[in-house]
Amino acid sequence: MSEAIAVYKQAEQGSSLWQDAWHRLQKNKLALCGLMVLILEIILALLTPWLAPYGYEQQDLALGAAPPSMEHWLGTDTLGRDMLTRIMYGGRVSLMVGFIATAVALLIGVVYGAVAGYMGGKVDALMMRLVDILYALPFMIFIILLMVIFGQNILLLFLAIGAVEWLTMARIVRGQVLSLRQQEYIEAAISIGLGPWTIIRRHIIPNTLGPVIVYTTLTIPSVMLLEAFLSFLGLGIQPPQSSWGLLISYGVETMEEYPWLLIYPGLKLSITLFALNFLGDGLRDALDPRASKD
């Protein structure tokens, strides 16, 4: 994501399209709020080990589950662990899953889509056929299956989620590339003897960035949701590691007596998903004003 922002910032100076988009985005207060919340959360996640008020495993069994107070702003859980600390550490994992799994999806999807769209003809038909078939598979069930069989491994979680989410990305990029291929500057590039790989890398991929950025910001929340869903079922992140989904699932168990154990992690997850969705919507409107808002 930070990479995408860097590319975005860099491109913004050179071309008027990016400048226009930035201006349009600035007018969208909700999207800007989303961006700000997100940047804040990333900074918080990076600095958690220094900012967290308590140690991650630090217990106060005598205290037990206490409601929010001056010492523990968001209360403590049943083992007397500080909730704010646990939510901050959980956020690191949740955000990491969101970004890394999306990056996996991004990498596979963009390369696959670009190659299919650029090659065209039979190669394209074959490659897209494969995507169609994979689309029809019930992936959620497959992810659960993978997690059950190979144990709850965080690396596998990244790969499994990434492997599901690249399909739509590949389709979007392919469509974009198909229309780009007709452009004259591509013909010019071919005529001066550039190889297909160079053309894909130098001309095609940079020009598909707009829709890719938009779809990326919309993929991150759905990935985070998937992680939380799996962790909630007990199939994702395993203790002693923590994530928002896992905290919510603990919160549900004790919500009658200690509702704050459910409400705060839930609020945190919802706010993050909100921010990402607003930013994604805003970027879509900014980068492609004609695209219909669904």
């Binding site: 989904g245 009658e256 459910l262 919802s270």
Partner: peptide, 22 residues
């Protein structure tokens, strides 16, 4: 609707139970 999209079912369900059930 935006709230509905950002509120996963495993959060909405318990919250509904908490409010309307408990």
């Amino acid at each position: 609707a935006m709230v509905g999209i950002c509120m996963p079912s495993f959060l909405l369900g318990p919250l509904l139970v908490l409010v309307f059930g408990i």
